[in-house]
């Protein structure tokens, strides 16, 4: 059975089990490995992608649920908010092991796209679903604030 959707701006049709989680569809069927597997139960955020602009956990999203919709993975990030987030991540040297960071960047970008001036409470709300076992949390928070600054300046 095939499912058609728009992946990173490209119309895509996958001939795969419609129950297969989107995570494994993008990783193993499409071959985009940036989105990570951490828990498989929407508990850690490592697999976060954007579905019609919303941050969602692709590990629990069946492929069939994205039919006709827009999916963006870390490989397809293009927006000004995303660029600001990634630049701030580098400036503040956020990653340690790095495994959670695709998901962190996706969640942070979705936050900034909706809310260009997030407060600490907004950051807690948007980012507490993304676990970082290396506990890069203080830098993630600082980097989101820094990204918000530069994003606003550029807008």
């Amino acid at each position: 059975m095939s499912t058609s959707f728009v992946l990173n701006g490209k119309p895509t049709t996958l001939d795969a089990d419609p129950n297969m989680p989107l995570l494994w569809a993008v990783r193993e069927v499409v071959g985009l490995p940036g989105t990570k597997f951490g828990c498989g139960m929407a508990l850690c955020g490592a697999c976060t992608v954007h579905l019609d602009g919303q941050a969602v956990r692709s590990c629990v999203m069946p492929l069939s649920a994205v039919a006709g919709r827009q999916v963006i993975t870390i490989e397809g990030l293009q927006s000004a908010a995303a660029k600001a987030v990634q630049a701030a991540w580098i400036k503040l040297q956020v990653p340690q092991c790095g495994y959670c960071q695709s998901g962190q960047v996706m969640s942070a970008t979705a936050l900034l796209e909706k809310n260009p001036s997030p407060t600490d409470a907004d950051i807690d709300g948007a980012m507490s679903g993304n676990i970082c076992r290396c506990a890069t949390y203080p830098r993630i928070r600082a980097a989101i604030h820094a990204a918000a600054q530069s994003f606003k300046a550029s807008a």
């Binding site: 490995p33 490989e75 991540w89 580098i90 990653p95």
Partner: peptide, 21 residues
């Protein structure tokens, strides 16, 4: 000194075992 691994860990290109094909 900036970390040598940061850029690849920000754009999803850093290679972990999970990603080996």
């Amino acid at each position: 000194a900036s970390r040598v691994d940061v850029a690849a860990k920000v754009d999803g290109t850093a290679q972990f075992t999970l990603d080996v094909v």
